[in-house]
Nucleic acid binder design. Structure first.
Lengths: 118, 118
DNA sequence: AAGTTTTTGCAACTGATTTGCATAAATTAT
DNA sequence: ATAATTTATGCAAATCAGTTGCAAAAACTT
């Protein structure tokens, strides 16, 4: 049920948002338990968003599970997906530093098209 | 005093770490108040690190104020600074999506040179 | 030194998330 | 289908990072 809600959304969702839409059916604790289960089983993945207006919240997405980045609009707080990862290969960085990069997380913030024209 | 501690560290520090080193002199609430003040006055800046072992914590750095990225080692939890930002220009992304990118945050995780050889 | 402003410690609070626990629902065995 | 066992749920309390109210302490003013 939670998985469906996430899969059917074009936006990453946070626990509160999911809970809002199914509060007659599920407890908030159950939502968190479900999200934890889904993430542990790689059905979804999550990232933290540090938003000056809305604070720190974890957002869940099923697309993100296959490496997806988003741009976050600081005005409307919606996410715009990015088709191709803007991060080039890290080979030169790895060679230079000896650090082996396993994961990367990218947060882009700005104003989406609509909000620029307001 | 807090600013000095951050400036003299080669690592971004979180509130707890700063507090640990000066707990005889300052209360944790005062550390947070100081950090808030410093960040508001652009002496330092901060980023969130979502670490599976240590949880979510905000790290403060004075270097970061002039746009600095780090790679976080998942074993020793130390940060390795990155000299040049690995993110290319966002112009093509902006042109394609209409989104205006104002800020970007990049978290790279992996194993630092030392921890790979353990 | 008395009065005013700022900073501090401490404790209580917040908000997101987690957990204990007893109950309810689902699953399996009888 | 029915008792026994496992799993999932709701609810409330706990947790954890971070914030805030408030009275006392320190720093400034005059």
């Amino acid at each position: 049920m939670i998985l469906e809600k996430i899969q059917n959304s074009d936006q990453p969702l946070c626990a509160q948002q999911i809970y809002e839409e199914m509060k007659e059916a599920l407890d908030l604790a159950t939502v968190y338990r479900g999200l934890k289960y889904l993430e542990e089983n790689s059905e979804i993945s999550s990232f933290l968003l540090d938003c000056s207006e809305r604070g720190v919240e974890r957002y869940y997405s099923s697309f993100f599970a296959h490496h997806k980045h988003y741009m976050h609009c600081m005005a409307c707080h919606r996410f715009t997906p990015i088709d191709t990862c803007p991060l080039g290969g890290f080979e030169s960085l790895e060679k230079k530093t000896g650090f082996r990069i396993d994961e990367h997380f990218l947060t882009l913030k700005g104003l989406c098209k609509k909000c620029q024209n307001k």
